[in-house]
Simulated scan of single mutants.
Amino acid sequence: METGKKTYYIAVANGHISQSSTAATWDYKIEASDDEITTLREYFDQVFSSDWQGFFRAHVPYLEYHYDRENDAIDDTNQLIYEMIYRLGDGDAKEHIQSQGIIGKIEHQE
C-alpha cells in the first residue's frame, strides 16, 4: 500500500464512503489518500445537488425536457466518479467497471 493511502468502501448509489467494510453495503473497495477522498466526496455532493435541481426542474411544466443540463451534469460527474474508482480500486472494482462498460475508454495504468 502506498504511503498515506487508506482503504475505503464505496457505495455509489447513495454516495457513501466508509473505512469499515461492515458499516453498510458497498460496491467498490479502493485505496485513496485524504485528498482523493475529498475529491470523491465533492463529486458525490455535485451529483446530489444536480439531482435536486433536476427534481425542481421536473416540476416546472413549461420547461422542455430536451434542455436538461442537470441530467447532463449528473452524467458527467458520474463518469468522473467511476474513472476515479477505477483508478483507485482493487482488481474486483476494475473488473466490474470494465465488464459493465461504465467507462467507455479506460487508460490502463501500470
Rank of each mutant, 00 (worst) to 15 (best):
M1Y: 14
M1W: 14
E2A: 15
K5A: 06
K5I: 01
K6I: 02
Y8V: 02
I10L: 07
I10R: 01
A11E: 13
A11C: 11
A11R: 14
V12P: 01
V12D: 04
A13T: 09
N14L: 09
G15S: 05
G15I: 06
G15M: 07
H16R: 13
I17T: 04
S18D: 09
S21T: 10
T22K: 15
A24C: 11
W26P: 01
Y28C: 04
Y28K: 04
K29Y: 02
I30G: 01
A32F: 01
A32C: 07
A32H: 01
A32G: 05
S33L: 07
S33Q: 06
D35V: 06
D35T: 06
E36G: 02
E36N: 03
I37F: 03
T38Q: 09
T38P: 00
T39L: 11
E42F: 08
Y43I: 03
F44T: 00
D45I: 12
D45S: 12
D45Y: 08
Q46S: 08
Q46P: 00
Q46D: 06
V47N: 01
F48M: 07
F48C: 02
F48R: 13
S49I: 12
S50M: 10
D51Y: 11
W52D: 06
Q53C: 08
Q53G: 07
G54C: 06
G54Q: 10
F55R: 10
A58T: 10
A58E: 11
H59A: 07
H59Q: 10
Y62F: 12
E64F: 11
Y65N: 09
H66D: 09
H66L: 10
D68A: 07
R69W: 10
R69T: 05
E70K: 02
E70S: 09
N71L: 08
N71V: 00
N71C: 05
N71K: 10
D72E: 13
D72L: 12
A73M: 09
A73H: 03
A73C: 04
I74E: 03
D75Q: 10
D75F: 04
T77H: 03
Q79D: 04
Q79Y: 08
Q79P: 00
I81D: 00
M84R: 08
Y86M: 07
R87Y: 08
R87L: 11
L88R: 06
L88M: 12
L88F: 03
G89Y: 00
G91H: 15
D92Y: 14
D92I: 12
D92G: 12
A93N: 07
A93T: 07
K94N: 05
K94R: 15
E95C: 11
I97R: 05
I97T: 05
S99L: 15
I102P: 00
I102K: 09
I102W: 09
I103E: 02
I103C: 08
G104V: 09
G104R: 12
K105C: 03
E107W: 12
Q109I: 15
E110V: 15
